[in-house]
């Protein structure tokens, strides 16, 4: 209720500011103009949306697969952990804005450079909480498994992997929030379709409302993905929210 009211107030003042302030709609379109663009350009928005949504979804999938593999490898091997951690951190310092055009020059205008950029950005926030959750498994649980004669692999499969799931989901939620920006950046660097590409073309054509509509579609998609992950968390891991007191 509060959230809806807040949004309404914000939209109302935005509309009033544009209309009463005589703001040029090329600079800042009113919410009503954006709504009109959303309706009029729906076919265009949809076809570009599917491109960007694919980049985000598959890029996150790549990040998830590589990130989990990396976290597990680092969990099992201290040598790998020492070798990979500095690389991981430095991967986050790469200015994507600079690298994106290079990747496009290297791989062309198709999906590959976009997947690489989304995956590069999402990789780190998946690895760190996952590895953290694996490290925080109760050492007494590992001892218990040893007294049962469990192998290292059994301990991982039965105890460590499920215990790390909340960490994986936290990482995925963090990634969703930044994946959209990464995909847009990748498209700005070189593309012929996608919502980022649409924004890039709309602004020099003075179709600012269309660009805003594209932003709206993109953030709605991100929020839906985030909501989906939060729902999965509640459904799959009811224990994660109610264990305080069980394991002290």
């Amino acid at each position: 209720m509060m959230a809806a009211a807040l949004v309404l107030v914000l939209l109302g003042s935005w509309e009033a500011y544009v209309r009463l302030g005589g703001i040029d709609e090329i600079v800042l379109p009113a919410p009503s103009a954006i709504a009109t663009a959303l309706h009029d350009d729906r076919a265009l928005l949809w076809s570009n949306f599917t491109v960007t949504a694919g980049e985000i979804a598959f890029g996150m999938l790549v990040a998830l697969v590589l990130g989990l593999a990396c976290a597990v490898a680092m969990h099992f091997s201290d040598a790998l952990r020492r070798a990979l951690y500095p690389l991981l951190v430095s991967s986050q310092t790469i200015p994507i804005v600079l690298v994106a055009p290079l990747l496009v020059a290297w791989w062309g205008f198709d999906l590959t450079p976009k997947l690489a950029i989304v995956a590069l950005v999402c990789f780190f926030p998946i690895v760190v909480p996952t590895l953290d959750a694996l490290d925080r498994v109760d050492p007494d649980l590992r001892k218990l498994m040893r007294t049962f004669g469990a192998s290292r692999w059994q301990t991982f499969r039965i105890v460590e992997a499920p215990a790390a799931l909340p960490g994986v989901l936290t990482g995925a939620k963090l990634s969703v929030a930044i994946a959209a920006i990464a995909a847009t950046l990748a498209e700005l660097a070189g593309s012929d379709s996608g919502l980022g590409n649409l924004m890039l073309k709309a602004i020099p054509n003075f179709e600012t409302a269309r660009a805003f509509a594209a932003v709206l579609v993109l953030s709605a998609f991100s929020m839906a993905l985030f909501g989906l992950l939060a729902l999965a968390e509640r459904r799959l891991l009811p224990w994660a929210h109610q264990t305080r007191g069980t394991a002290q």
Binding site: D140, M145, F148, G149, I158, V159, L237, T246
Partner: peptide, 22 residues
């Protein structure tokens, strides 16, 4: 141990059966 060390995602019966599964 003092702490029960039950796996929070497993039911009572699956926790009790842990060593058998191992």
């Amino acid at each position: 141990a003092q702490r029960d060390l039950l796996l929070p995602w497993r039911s009572a019966v699956d926790n009790a059966a842990l060593a058998l599964r191992v």
